[in-house]
Amino acid sequence: MADSAVAESSHDTHDDHAHHPTERQYWVVFVALAVLTALEVAWSYGGLEGVALVVPLVVMMVAKFLLVAGAFMHLYFDLKLINGRLFSWAFGFSLLLAVLVYFVVFAAFDRLTWWPF
């Protein structure tokens, strides 16, 4: 198995591209991004307020974020290549730390209006 891995590594450049999206898929992602942007703008003009306005906008924003990061930045494809356990721990810990920092900052500035304490 190790020998085959060495042999396969000699043509990794082309194999790598086999795991990236095709040109057609890139265009599909772009059209999806354009449609989501148009939907976002249309929603913001809908006269809605509060949760009805903000939640769909945030959902569409996250969808656009995932499309760019996953397809254009090849994150979805590269994640399959890297050492899953180490990356998962590092990524999970960083995300948890980032969320905690946000809570602390907003709490420090008294902006967590829904917080019971």
Binding site: V6, D12, T13, D16, D78, L81
Partner: peptide, 19 residues
């Protein structure tokens, strides 16, 4: 220079590398 034989990259021969 080469990934471990049991790594995901070795399994499918793709390493996301260009030199």
């Amino acid at each position: 220079d080469t990934p471990p034989a049991d790594s995901p990259g070795a399994a499918d021969g793709s390493h996301g590398d260009h030199g």
